[in-house]
C-alpha cells in the first residue's frame, strides 16, 4: 500500500510540475516571442504611457465623447472587479433602475425618441468591461456630440461608420463599435475642429500626461 501511495504522490508532483509550471511558462514564452502585444494585454500607449486596453471598456461618461454601456464592474469599468448586474428581468428594483437610466439617456440625447432606445446602451455587459456599443447607440449620440463640440454631424456619422467592427469573417458576432477605438479617433477630430474644447476636455489628462512625461 505504501508503495502504491508513493506512486500516487509521485504522479501528483510530476503532473503538477508539468501541467502547472511547465505548461504556463511555455505559453508565456511563446507569447513573449510571437505575440508580445496581445500577451501584454493589448495596451494602447500614448507617448509610451498606457492609456488603456483595446479590449477593455473605459468609463466614458463625459457628454462630449461617445459614452459606453452602464457598467457594474466595481464603481464602473473597474478592471479588477469584473461582473454584471445580475439583475433578473422581473426584478422590480431593476426595472426602476432601468427607468432612471432610460430617462438619463433621453435627457442627454433628446433627439432619440422613446421606443427607439437601443437596448445595449441602457443595459450592462456581463463583465462590465465590454468596450462595444451598438451602431445605433453610437449614431444616437452623434447629435449630442455634434452640438457640444461643433463637429458636423456628417463627420461624426462618418467616424462611426469607419469604426464599425463588423461580423468577424462575415459570420461571427453582431456588428458594434469599440468605444476605446472610437473615442481615440474622436479626440483627434475634436482636436481638429475645436482645439480649445480639446484642451478643456482632455485637460486633466494632458496635464497629468505632461507632468508624468
Amino acid at each position: 500500500m505504501i508503495k502504491e501511495l508513493i506512486k500516487m504522490i509521485k504522479l501528483t508532483v510530476l503532473l503538477y510540475i508539468v501541467c502547472s509550471l511547465g505548461y504556463t511558462f511555455l505559453i508565456w514564452g511563446i507569447g513573449k516571442i510571437a505575440f508580445p502585444f496581445q500577451a501584454g494585454g493589448s495596451l494602447v500607449y500614448k507617448n509610451s504611457k498606457p492609456i488603456g486596453s483595446m479590449l477593455i471598456g473605459e468609463k466614458f461618461t463625459s457628454p462630449y465623447i461617445f459614452n459606453g454601456r452602464p457598467s457594474y464592474a466595481g464603481n464602473g469599468y473597474n478592471g479588477t472587479e469584473s461582473g454584471g448586474s445580475n439583475y433578473a428581468p422581473t426584478n422590480g428594483k431593476y426595472i426602476r433602475h432601468e427607468k432612471k437610466l432610460i430617462n438619463n439617456f433621453l435627457k442627454e440625447n433628446p433627439s432619440v425618441k422613446k421606443g427607439e432606445i437601443p437596448v445595449d446602451i441602457v443595459t450592462g455587459s456581463g463583465s462590465g468591461l465590454g468596450p462595444y456599443i451598438s451602431i445605433a447607440a453610437a449614431f444616437d449620440q452623434v447629435p449630442r456630440i455634434s452640438s457640444l463640440t461643433g463637429i458636423p454631424k456628417s463627420a461624426l456619422y462618418m467616424l462611426v461608420k469607419r469604426n464599425i467592427s463588423y461580423r468577424q469573417f462575415g459570420i461571427f458576432g453582431t456588428p458594434g463599435v469599440n468605444t476605446v477605438k472610437l473615442n481615440l479617433k474622436l479626440s483627434l477630430l475634436i482636436k481638429k475642429y475645436n482645439f480649445k474644447l480639446y484642451k478643456l476636455i482632455f485637460k486633466g489628462f494632458l496635464f497629468k500626461y505632461t507632468i508624468n512625461n
Binding site: 428581468p89 445595449d120 465590454g130 451602431i135 458576432g173
Partner: peptide, 29 residues
C-alpha cells in the same frame, strides 16, 4: 418590461435588440 419603458428590443441592422442585460454587444445574442 424594458420595451414598455421605451427601449427598442427588436433586432435591426444597427440595434442588436433582445435581452442585452449581461451580454457583450459585439458577441451578440
Amino acid at each position: 418590461f424594458l420595451a414598455k419603458l421605451g427601449v427598442n428590443i427588436v433586432a435591426s441592422k444597427n440595434n442588436p435588440g433582445g435581452n442585452m442585460e449581461g451580454k457583450q454587444e459585439h458577441i451578440g445574442i
